[in-house]
Nucleic acid binder design. Structure first.
Length: 580
DNA sequence: GCCGTTTTCGGCCCGACTGTTTTCAGTCG
């Protein structure tokens, strides 16, 4: 049995939090488990390893009790308290809380008094008008339950929107509202502003001298299917494709407070308010109340909000309570897309791309890059998109010719070679040696154990001609889980071998993710940000890789392909091997 | 259940809405 991953441990703590909540534990105990789950999820090292080393209580929110539970999980594969509570509450009980207006307390009450233990039994009770018999429940609740079932809310968890789709929609709404005469300022907030992997809904904030007019304007947008206003200064809407939008409007002199509040994330805000309370200050979306003067400071800008709290302005991408509020934290000068000088991973018509190598090279040049690597899929890729060894030899000639012909950009010939299950690339070493640059990626056999997958990737990292590992975990955001691997071991091997790890910029990959990128950087791995573009039209997607790098706190100096070609070139294994 | 410039106990963020209530607990963002 291999050690549980951080994701597995975090899920176990979340489940225990849910179970304690159903059990009626004091709220702070439940919060403690949720906080611990977050700390584990955000940890840049293996929590299993920390536990074995006796250092796990150094993580914020993990004390002696949770350490004990972690030890039990490692030794027996389960936590006794979890087993006990699972026996007490049917698994379907948690599902009930997916319904609007039904939280753990009320779900528990329905279970105790009516024996409701699943979505199905809840539906039957609502249809039979049995719910109104329970104190605190009435006909309106029965109606809302049936409406939720009719809308399909109960059947599946609400889908989350991958960031690029969310940004596209959010931009359209923000632009439309800005055009309204009552608008003074309109900005996207929430996960869109933090450039999270995906978002649940869109949060939009605005400043206006006439809030109701702007709230009403949201309902009139073409892309809005239905809208309801809740209060004069707020509106909630749904788009035709089912995305929820929350709009909040305040006076211009409070806009900074509102923007800060709705940018979040929740943990960041909670920590900010907890710190503020110790200074006699109370932070809300309307202002900062000072106990000493009983006056509320309204802030037109976010900078004022943070300054009043004795903090530097923190870029939204870093507002995740991952250390950015700790004393002495220095806000890094985060990398920007304009600082990228090269792209080391893209495809052409030789494999599954839509444009030729010449077109991709020109596209990169037009985007201001100094170097680009042509890296088509390798011999065993399949789907009819593989490049045989002979075809790769022809590709070498072709790309070398393009490089001679194009001024202003270095065009490298490379490959994205498959990492076979035994860790070997699928071209001969002699052929790989002829290339300028080799990315190696896992495209098959995702289901290996963590130990096997780690061994496989480390073998690739140790290969003399593999310069870089592509999309390390294979995740597809909201569609496919990352494969199991020991990230710490892989980062150590990459640092030791001088093998680079990419942040793949495909908006549904962003792999390395933010947590991994931070951890890899911390142990000295050389990181590059690549587009993996399959056509000229998507060569701009580096913005999503940049977003992940910023969320990881990386600066230009932390990312190798911000360097000019003359400085980047010698960092490649291909250059180092040629020099010896 | 965690934690400390309120330090080993007694605290632990903010505001709004909802449906059900006679004053509010629970839920949500």
């Amino acid at each position: 049995m291999s050690d549980p991953s951080n994701a597995t441990i975090a899920a176990a703590f979340d489940e225990l939090g849910d179970l304690y909540e159903l059990d009626g534990a004091v709220a702070y105990r439940v919060i403690a488990y949720r906080n611990a789950a977050k700390a584990v999820r955000d940890a840049s090292v293996s929590v299993s390893a920390l536990t074995r080393e006796g250092r796990v209580t150094s993580l914020p929110g993990i004390g002696k009790t949770l350490e004990e539970k972690l030890r039990a999980l490692l030794e027996t594969g389960t936590i006794p308290a979890t087993e006990k509570l699972r026996a007490k509450f049917p698994p379907g009980l948690i599902d009930l809380t997916r319904l609007p207006g039904l939280g753990p307390k009320r779900a528990r009450k329905l279970f105790d008094e009516l024996g409701i233990d699943s979505l199905e039994s809840l539906r039957e009770a609502a249809e039979g008008q049995k719910l109104r018999g329970v104190k605190g429940f009435g006909p309106k609740f029965e109606e809302s339950v049936l409406a939720a079932f009719a809308a399909g809310v109960a059947e599946k968890a609400a889908p989350r929107l991958v960031l690029n789709k969310a940004v596209e929609l959010s931009d359209a709404i923000v632009d439309a509202l800005r055009a309204h005469p009552a608008a003074v300022r309109v900005e996207a907030a929430g996960g869109v502003r933090r450039l999270a992997d995906s978002v649940k809904d869109l949060d939009i904030v605005a400043a206006s001298e006439d809030p109701p007019a702007l709230a009403a304007a949201l309902a009139d947008l073409d892309l809005v299917e239905s809208a309801s206003s809740s209060g004069e200064n707020a509106a909630r809407a749904r788009t035709h494709n089912g995305v929820s939008i929350d709009l909040r409007v305040v006076a211009p002199d409070q806009f900074g407070n509102l923007l800060q509040h709705f940018t979040g994330n929740k943990q960041h805000n909670v920590k900010i308010r907890e710190r503020a309370v110790r200074k006699g200050l109370h932070v809300s979306e309307y202002g900062i109340l000072d106990d000493a003067t009983e006056e509320t400071l309204r802030c037109a800008t976010e900078e004022e909000v943070y300054a009043r709290l004795g903090l530097p302005w923190i870029p939204p991408e870093l507002r995740e309570d991952r250390g950015e509020l700790e004393p002495g934290y220095v806000v890094p000068d985060l990398i920007t897309q304009e600082q990228l000088k090269g792209d080391l991973h893209c495809h052409t018509t030789a494999s599954d791309g839509r444009n030729t190598a010449l077109e991709m090279a020109r596209g990169a040049l037009e985007r201001g890059l100094e170097y680009v690597a042509i890296t088509d899929h390798s011999a065993t890729h399949g789907f009819g998109n593989d490049v045989s060894p002979d075809a790769l030899k022809r590709q070498i000639e072709l790309v070398r010719g393009i490089n001679d012909q194009l001024d202003g950009i270095e065009v490298l010939v490379g490959t994205e070679t498959n990492i076979l299950p035994d860790g070997a690339p699928d071209y001969d070493d002699d052929l790989l040696a002829e290339l300028d640059w080799v990315v190696a990626s896992v495209h098959t056999s995702f289901g290996m154990s963590s130990a096997e997958m780690t061994k496989r990737i480390v073998a690739a990292i140790e290969h003399p001609w593999i310069d870089c590992i592509g999309h390390l975990t294979g995740r597809k955001i909201e569609r496919r889980k990352p494969y199991d691997l020991d990230a710490d071991a892989i980062f150590a091997a990459a640092a030791a071998n001088g093998t680079m790890l990419e942040i793949n910029s495909a908006p549904d990959r962003r792999d390395l993710n933010d947590v991994h990128a931070r951890a890899a950087n911390a142990v000295g791995v050389t990181i590059v940000i690549n587009t993996d573009a399959h056509g000229v039209s998507t060569q701009g997607i580096a913005r999503w890789g940049i977003a992940t790098a910023r969320r990881a706190g990386l600066t230009a100096a932390d990312v190798a392909n911000t360097r000019p070609w003359a400085e980047f070139a010698p960092l490649r294994k291909h250059a180092r091997a040629a020099a010896t």
